[in-house]
Design a protein around this nucleic acid. Structure first.
Lengths: 358, 358
DNA sequence: TCCCTTACTACACACGTTTGCAGCGCGCCC
DNA sequence: GGGCGCGCTGCAAACGTGTGTAGTAAGGGA
């Protein structure tokens, strides 16, 4: 520590200034022009071996840090990616962001993170700030107004990738799970176990993924010739509170469902609590299926059967698309990934005394 | 949508170019100098009312976006904050980040998010990239090597705030919960309930918060004249897996503990599962106390008694310090916030047949 | 009528890089 | 010995803003 301080003070002529040392300061100290410094620091073959060495040691000792902002201005590339999410406190979002950030950093990119709380106006505002910052690419999760700025950004040649929302026919790329298939399979699993009164708990905020998952649920019912019953559909808010409330409503039905398919695991968390409160056993009385396979799914009581989404992988995929587009490679517009049903302890055949089975 | 397209094409002379429109393009279209445009767009009183209006409409129609990078170069302020975290998939981290990001965005700042996976080298690397990007301030959660770069950054006048790690005596600011007091209170609560064999499950990764919480645990024991028993201390990894494993070890003891104080809620999640696996009832046989009060704490079975941290508030506080320092206001170096014990269903008096009570 | 003030605008430079091009010294070949 | 190429370096322009200062026109007062 003290050695470091000493080293620094030896070079105080450079580093004591208010402003950080610039390429010109290094040039002066090395007795070369600033362009030579610029080239040397980036290992240009145009600079001789010994000059490069000399410049590099001087730069190191003086604690020089290249100014990415000046570089960006000169190259008109910022090596940044803007990421807008609903909220990073949503564990699903956090996982995807992890994937994005890792991929980005491994390729020398930094990420701007901004949350929009699912408000369309704030989403637009955030995207505009990303434009001003000249991000090289934008990734938006659960977009609400992608179409508003997409055309504009396309003109600016800013790659933009939507996660969990398809917008075909525009200059948009997207990564999403095959919600329809996954939720059809999940519902079909309940049916296969013998359930016929299956409820769907959705998200009242109207995300596209909710619409799609609801679609898969209906397809599975239809395929099994089980009539769709609107009163078996309830809506939460995608969070435990909402799930608990929705389950509370379903429990008031004269004929309770024996299986519940939840829009996501967060809702399922609330559902489990509602059932516990009402002394309904899971899975003996009611089976529960979630969606996402969040970290807590193996730790609920009982552990949660759910559809696993390759969350981190989706983040990496989205970033990969951005990077590819930036390097001039063309890309598929809509990338679909598949979910995987993970069976745990929250699902079982319906109770024998189910009047429908008599 | 189509109207938008039409509007844009009417102005294609400006916006059709490869590069985004610059201040000079606007100046040309408005028949003024670029400096007038610069001033007009920021409502300088030096520009006449009507000129300002004219320039603004032209800028709006052409979809002009000021270049933050050029502005940063000119003003040597970027209005960005760099945030480095261990991992954003940690729900605690996610909450704090939410607080940071909200506060930042409300003050016109954008945040760079980078995770370091608790690796010292990566943390240093990330901080260096923040330096290069000329962030106005840096916030680091659970830092491992703050001291390495702190001096350097202090020289550059970059405010840096550590969350959950004190480093007194340096040019560092910090926000942290009063771990000692909080965990002393939590342990004391178990003691008050009648527990005497109380275990501590820590984090083997050696975070300062773990050390401090362990300290509070010991203080509470000491205060109650309960001898500290080293074999009642186990270490997880701060995640459910680690907690489950650690609990498994404690269950092998000839004399099982009747109360467990967990380093954090994530560990407690695993602990609860281990107990369920071994048919140990909570809280009848063993009481559990967590730390953090994460979103799932009310939804575990049984719901989790834990120490609430004002997570989002801590993020806002850290950001506030950065903003204050940037505006020239002086700040307290070490801000401490208090935890709050939230009693739920995972704690109760120890079983009567406790041999220690006979 | 002249000068001074006021209100506005343009000019020019700065910010810290990158990069095309010119220049320069040296050795080699014809 | 002259020309040419090669290896290296410096010059200068550019990127898109902000901003101090000079300049200009109008208006008003003496």
């Amino acid at each position: 520590m003290f050695n470091l301080d000493k080293d620094d003070s030896r070079l105080s002529d450079l580093s004591e200034t208010e402003k950080p040392a610039s390429i010109k300061d290094i040039a002066r100290a090395a007795n070369v022009s600033h362009s030579t410094v610029s080239r040397a620091l980036r290992n240009s073959p145009l600079v001789s071996r010994e000059t490069t060495e000399r410049i590099k040691t001087i730069a190191l000792q003086s604690g020089y840090r290249v100014s990415a902002v000046a570089r960006s201005l000169a190259t008109s590339k910022t090596r940044t990616i803007g990421v807008v999410v609903t909220s990073v406190r949503d564990p699903f979002v956090a996982e995807v962001v992890t994937g994005i950030e890792n991929m980005a950093i491994n390729h020398g990119y930094s990420v701007f993170l901004a949350s929009c709380n699912a408000e369309a106006m704030r989403e637009a505002k955030v995207v505009q700030s990303f434009e001003e910052r000249r991000v090289d690419g934008i990734i938006v999760m659960d977009s609400r107004v992608g179409s508003l700025y997409a055309a504009h950004l396309a003109k600016m040649k800013v790659p933009i990738v939507l996660i969990n929302k398809f917008r075909t026919g525009e200059f948009l790329y997207s990564v999403a799970i095959d919600n329809l298939t996954a939720s059809r399979d999940a519902t079909a699993y309940l049916i296969q176990l013998g359930h016929t009164r299956i409820a769907y708990i959705g998200d009242r905020d109207g995300f596209q993924s909710d619409t799609d998952r609801f679609g898969g649920y209906r397809q599975a019912l239809e395929h099994a010739d089980i009539p769709f019953q609107p009163h078996l559909v309830a809506h939460g808010d995608g969070k435990p509170e909402g799930g608990e409330e929705a389950m509370g409503q379903l429990l008031k039905l004269p004929e309770r469902p024996t299986g519940i398919f939840c829009f996501n695991d967060m809702s399922a968390l609330g559902v489990l609590r509602a059932l516990r409160t009402h002394n309904v056993r899971v899975p003996e009385d009611i089976s529960i299926v979630g969606f996402d396979d969040l970290f807590f799914a193996p730790y609920t009581e009982p552990s949660l059967t759910t559809v696993r989404q390759p969350k981190e992988h989706m983040g990496r995929l989205a970033t990969e698309i951005v990077l590819k587009l930036l390097s001039g490679t063309s890309c598929e517009y809509n990338v679909k990934v598949q979910g995987e049903l993970v069976v745990r302890e929250s699902t079982a055949p319906p109770p024998r005394e189910d009047p429908h089975l008599i």
